[in-house]
Design a protein around this nucleic acid. Structure first.
Length: 522
DNA sequence: ATGATGGGCGCC
DNA sequence: AAAGGGCGCCCATCAT
């Protein structure tokens, strides 16, 4: 049963519109009584007020996310996907642009009413049924919508973040917090060392100045990447590399960042569900998906609580094995260490097996790749063919889809120009690598979303999902629940596998550990 | 002053 | 560890 929530009203589909005095209370009561699938314009906006009112729901249908998935499938990639835009299209009215990220409260349009949202829902459900594989797409929509619930909840609950530990770490590495606009003392000392070693004043943040100064010292640099610098024998290199590392920590995850993103011992980033074309999440501020490993010690469970950290091992090759239905590869993917199981086919070398798989999935060409790919083609023809087909489709300018039906963007007009020009072969090959990767990464993202959705439903109160990073999840729970949560992770992985692939010999093992601090995991 | 772009690098 | 795809985000720099 679908129930639309919009603008302080509640509309059970097929029923009568209600205007409850306390909408949050009405949602809570209906959730307890009948667990409907809640429908709203955009979970990111509509669920947050409910969370603040202490209401959580099990299932939803996110109109905007669904519209985005449908438009892409229908070859209308990039058209506005808001409920308002979808409603306008339905009635042949002018379609408004996507709302700017900072809504203008003075001139923002009236929110769409529940009846209008119900119309869009009916239209979306019709469009889904008209697809060649409606069952898969329904699963995609459910998983994406569940992801929106999780994302809103994780932003609401936040990841444990010890500001005292963070401050101690920063002070240890950089020196005490400087006054605004100044470099921390240790950073400044490194900058001074670089200047002294190069014999002229240089801002180590400036690529231009660095290249010039190194040239003056007799060193020709193409770039100032650390990989290139490491090849250079010059006394400025060591302090410069140290500077780069610490400067990044200071500006990306330093005190200013913490002032902005950490409150009440919780880091609260804003996640963007489906923010990456492949279906992975992105973040909007906070850089939650780029937290440096050295910072993990700052993520500490509350007293008496634990962090259960779990990540999927070798997710992408397993996804490929399951999608391609390659019996040989699926057999190896029935083992915990897929690459070891493959080693036999590659002269007993686990590393060679790994290179072959990665090159097949990502279009790698370096080193021994081509030789190993030949072995791959011979031993695992269906898996090989699957990614080759995806690459060829992309090179020809056509679109590909993930297992559940997420659609890759079409080539840009610029690409179409390029591909018939002198750089055409290169442009085609680049896009082939993209589509080759899309089918694997996109399906891996779907598996991870399904895992997340199932796990969310299995967690006991008061355990909370607090972090999700592509193929890794973190749950914050009372210590006494840790074993139960670890078991829930395994169960969720098995269920996600069944949902996507049905009966398959491929296993998707997850390593889950209970720790006090994130740094102890892995 | 403000906005756009590219280098560089963190994460998966 | 190699490797490729995907991002976000800072800084410097250049154009407006």
């Amino acid at each position: 049963m679908y129930v639309v929530v919009a603008a302080q009203t509640v509309l059970p589909v097929g029923g009568a519109l209600r205007r409850p005095a306390d909408p949050a209370k009405a949602v809570r009561e209906m959730e307890e009584a009948e667990r409907p699938r809640w429908v709203w314009a955009e979970a990111r906006e509509d669920y947050a007020p409910l969370l603040r009112a202490g209401v959580r729901v099990a299932r939803c249908h996110d109109i905007a996310l669904t519209e985005g998935l449908l438009l892409a499938y229908e070859g209308r990639y990039g058209e506005p996907r808001s409920a308002r835009a979808a409603h306008a299209r339905l009635h042949g009215l002018p379609v408004p642009d996507e709302r700017p990220s900072a809504p203008d409260t003075l001139f923002a349009p009236e929110p769409l009413g529940a009846e209008a949202i119900a119309e869009v829902l009916a239209d979306q459900l019709r469009r889904i049924e008209a697809l060649p594989e409606p069952g898969r797409f329904r699963l995609l929509v459910a998983a994406e919508s569940a992801g929106a619930l999780v994302a809103a909840e994780m932003s609401h609950d936040g990841m444990p973040w010890r500001r005292d530990v963070h401050d101690a770490l920063l002070t240890d590495l950089l020196g005490p917090r400087p006054v605004h606009g100044m470099r921390p003392v240790k950073l400044q000392a490194l900058a001074d060392e670089v200047t002294a070693a190069l014999g002229q004043p240089v801002n180590p943040d400036s690529v231009q100045q660095l290249v010039k100064a190194f040239k003056g010292a007799g060193v020709a640099l193409k770039t100032t990447r650390s990989s290139e610098l490491k090849q250079v024998d010059h006394p400025a290199v060591v302090p410069l590399l140290a500077y780069k590392e610490l400067a990044r920590l200071f500006s990306f995850h330093g005190w200013v960042w913490a002032d902005q993103w950490v409150r009440d011992g919780r880091f609260r980033p804003e996640y963007v569900v489906g923010g990456v074309v492949s279906g992975r999440w992105a973040t909007n501020g906070g850089g939650a998906l780029q937290i440096p490993k050295v910072m993990r010690r700052v993520v500490v469970a509350d007293d008496g609580w634990a962090l259960v950290v779990a990540d999927a091992a070798q997710l992408e090759p397993r996804v490929l094995a399951a999608m391609a239905g390659d019996v040989g590869l699926a057999g190896a993917a029935g083992e915990i260490d897929l690459y070891s199981a493959l080693a036999q086919s590659f002269g007993g070398q686990r590393e060679n097996a790994k290179i072959a798989m990665l090159s097949a999935m990502y279009g790698g060409t370096s080193g021994d790749a081509s030789k190993l790919l030949a072995v791959m083609r011979q031993r695992f023809p269906k898996a090989y063919q699957f990614v080759e087909d995806a690459a060829k489709t992309g090179e020809e300018g056509r679109i590909v889809r993930s297992w559940l039906g997420r659609t890759s963007p079409p080539p840009s007009p610029r690409w179409r120009e390029l591909v018939s020009g002198p750089e055409g072969v290169r442009a085609a090959r680049d896009r082939g690598r993209f589509t080759r990767n899309f089918v694997v990464q996109g399906t891996a993202a779907e598996w991870a979303l399904a895992l997340l959705a199932v796990l969310r439903g299995l967690l006991p109160e008061p355990a909370r999902l607090v972090f999700f990073q592509h193929d890794e999840v973190m749950v914050h729970c009372p210590q006494a629940q840790a074993e139960e949560v670890i078991a829930a992770v395994s169960e969720a992985a098995a269920e996600a596998t069944r949902l996507l692939f049905g009966a398959t010999p491929v296993r998707f093992p997850m390593s889950a550990v209970a720790v006090k601090s994130y740094a102890e995991a892995k």
